[in-house]
Amino acid sequence: MSELFVPVLLTIITASTPLVFAAAGEVVVEKSGVLNLGVEGMMIVGAVIAFAVGVKTESAALAIISGAAGGMLTAFIFGFLTLRLLANQVATGLALTIFGLGLSALIGHGFVGKTFSGLPKIGVPFLEQIPVLGPLLFVHDILVYLSVIAVFLITYVFNKTRLGLIIRAVGENHHAAHSIGYSIVWVRMGCILFGGSMAGLGGAYLSLAYTPLWVEGMTAGRGWIALALVVFASWRAWRAFFGAYLFGGITIIQLHAQGFGVDIASQFLSMLPYLATIVVLVLISNNSSRMMLNAPADLGKSFHASD
């Protein structure tokens, strides 16, 4: 059984990791009261820059860092427009996606058909020896570990630290936070840049590890799914993590079901993740008081001190 079990679960981990990065980053952004719908755009810029740097320098570390930086730079455009110039967040985010898809195609023009060796797998000493669990949990590339660490850190910061408190305050009621003396713009800018770098890492994972290649439009809508996961997770990083794995899991399992000859129209199988998300969401939101506590009250609203 474990012969099939382990590879299936490993596939789920690979399929979920880019979503974890992007969704966890967006959780932080939205917690600070900003709705950035440009995740797809930031992801794909991260993907192309990581791949380009990877091919040019053959250094995985540099590639990963530049992927994060690429996402961050794209996010900066969004931050500048929405925070400094108070542009509408929903529209700016969508424009960012159009822009990012175009920009990535321009940058990636010379990299179609090139290959990258992929990221090396790193085993955790001793733990990797455990049967079944060892190869499943403790032999991965650096980005998979990083995605888990990031989720832990984000959860920790929001629950235990002053910084988390500040971000939440800014997202809940920016006027109150402003009157206590926090700089709304800078806190939000920090969160947007962080979210951008996470989306960039998600993209980098796609082009460096998941499928180490560059082709135009290779994110194929994963940024949108990450956005959905954030709401699905009711703005909690660890729930976004599980949401990503649930989503990745359903996708992979339906591919396996087909391999076993399950007779069902592939379109209906493909629908399952989305239907599941809606159902789970309805179940969660039925408990409306909890939902209300987690949703940042000032989400999507521009802030200006004199408003």
Partner: peptide, 27 residues
Amino acid sequence: IKVVWVSTWFDPGKEADAAKALIAQGA
């Protein structure tokens, strides 16, 4: 022959996942 339909002409990630599923099932 085992066939997995991915319902897309072009999604590198999903194509890779389908290939992995097939490999795991013995292809």
